[in-house]
Simulated scan of single mutants.
Amino acid sequence: MKRSLRTSRIAALGAGGVVSVALLTGCGDDGAGGTGSADASAAQGRSERSPAQVVQATNKKTTQARTARIKLATTVAAGGDSETVTGSGVLDLRDGTSRMRMGQGGRQLEQRIVNQVLYQKPPAGSGRLPDGKSWMKVDLRRLNASQGTGGPAMSDPASSFAYTKSLSEKDVRKVGKEDLNGVSTTHYRVDLDLSKLARGDSAQERELRTQLGDSVPVDLWIDEDGLTRRQQLSMTVKDTAQSGGSGTSARQAKAKVVMDFSDFGTDVDVAAPAPADTVDVTGKLSRHSGTNAQTG
């Protein structure tokens, strides 16, 4: 029976999920913005802060931890099928540098992100690479530029998706206290305002809604030190490749990305593969993206 979701495509979504979660967790510039009131109220004690202020403060606090171990679970459902990709590794919370292994069962791929370039090593015998090559290379900055807008899953972790700066009290609510992996946390629900994320750019807002759907709930579990211990992102993804690139017939896939953070301050030593071992597929992905945009 033909499956509507293929492992390779799920793995690709998982790769995007790693970057998306890194961006949403707290990788953002610490210049002037909405975090000022949260920082000022920190001295008054966490119990006196509003839910929005707590979420604003965790942006800076988690980034200051510099690095962490991560566990990822990406579940995608479409056409009655559902598949889950899991992964684990290490992540630099400041610039998105990471090393992970992810996949399903015995079929695992290795992934690295170095200087905003993504490298993936498919499972042995997959037949997806030319002879003599063991890694695929995707320049995320080039791909982002070719798409014409700052897509959140392919943007600069140092400056993009710092959504906490535009949060208002109505965007955040406290769910309650929960133990998570042996750590006492407080669960918060954030409803992202895509119009605020687009900063008045109507084209980018349309792109965000195409990539993420109209409703994008983000759940955060924040510990007593103000560090994010878990983040869960739910979104809608168009799987145009399964429908021949036609926007009108593209499948709607529901994706949920859950990322757990632990061992803050762990070593993150990640190097890019040797150039001779890589094949650059950025251009191919850019052309594919352009075709989808024209037919969508």
Rank of each mutant, 00 (worst) to 15 (best):
Ser126Thr: 11
Thr35Asp: 14
Ala68Pro: 11
Asp223Gly: 12
Ala38Thr: 07
Asp201Phe: 06
Val279Ser: 04
Val54Asp: 01
Ala274Gly: 07
Asp269Leu: 10
Gly14Trp: 02
Met154Asn: 15
Gln64Lys: 08
Thr97Ser: 08
Met1Lys: 12
Ala198Tyr: 01
Lys60Asn: 13
Pro122Asp: 10
Thr185His: 11
Ser286Ile: 00
Arg107Met: 12
Gly296Tyr: 10
Thr278Cys: 14
Gly80Ala: 05
Pro217Ile: 07
Lys137Asn: 01
Lys133Leu: 00
Ala198Phe: 01
Arg206Ser: 10
Tyr119Phe: 11
Gly244Ser: 10
Ser249Val: 13
Ile113Gln: 13
Asp201Met: 03
Gly80Leu: 06
Gln108Asp: 10
Thr84His: 03
Asp267Cys: 11
Asp267Phe: 09
Thr228Arg: 04
Val90Gly: 05
Lys165Leu: 00
Asp201Ser: 14
Ser82Trp: 10
Gly105Ala: 08
Gly103Asn: 12
Pro273Thr: 03
Asp277Glu: 14
Ala274Pro: 00
Ser4Met: 12
Val21Ala: 15
Leu192Glu: 06
Ser20Ala: 14
Leu227Glu: 09
Val21Thr: 14
Leu180Tyr: 08
Ala253Glu: 09
Val281Gln: 14
Met154Glu: 13
Ala40Cys: 02
Thr295Ala: 06
Thr149Val: 15
Ser234Cys: 05
Thr7Gly: 07
Thr25Leu: 15
Thr63Pro: 08
Arg230Ile: 07
Asp171Val: 13
Gly103Glu: 04
Leu194Glu: 00
Ala68Thr: 13
Asp263Glu: 14
Ser262His: 03
Gly103Arg: 12
Leu285Glu: 02
Val85Phe: 01
Ala124Met: 00
Asp201Pro: 07
Asn144Met: 09
Val55Pro: 01
Ser160Phe: 13
Ala32His: 03
Asn181Thr: 12
Arg189Val: 06
Asp214Ser: 08
Gly200Glu: 02
Met102Val: 00
Arg209Pro: 02
Tyr188Ile: 03
Asp30Pro: 08
Met136Ser: 02
Pro157Thr: 05
Arg128Lys: 12
Ser82Tyr: 01
Gly96Thr: 10
Ser4Lys: 11
Asp131Tyr: 06
Leu109Arg: 15
Val55Gly: 00
Arg287Pro: 08
Ala198Glu: 00
Pro217Asp: 04
Gly36Asp: 12
Asn292Ser: 07
Thr278His: 00
Lys196Tyr: 05
Gln53Glu: 15
Leu167Gly: 00
Asp263Ala: 13
Thr186Lys: 03
Phe161Val: 09
Arg142Cys: 03
Gln211Leu: 14
Ala77Met: 05
Ala274Trp: 02
Gly127Trp: 03
Asp95Cys: 14
Gly290Lys: 13
Thr84Ile: 05
Ile70Lys: 09
Gly213Trp: 11
Arg6Ile: 05
Ser262Asp: 15
Ala276Leu: 05
Arg66Ile: 07
Arg46Glu: 02
Ala65Asn: 03
Trp135Gln: 14
Arg209Asp: 03
Val190Asp: 07
Arg173Tyr: 05
Gln116Pro: 04
Arg69Phe: 00
Ser184Thr: 07
Ala250His: 08
Leu5Ser: 04
Arg94His: 09
Ile222Gly: 01
Val76Trp: 07
Lys121Leu: 09
Val90Ala: 13
Lys284Ile: 09
Val190Leu: 07
Gly290His: 04
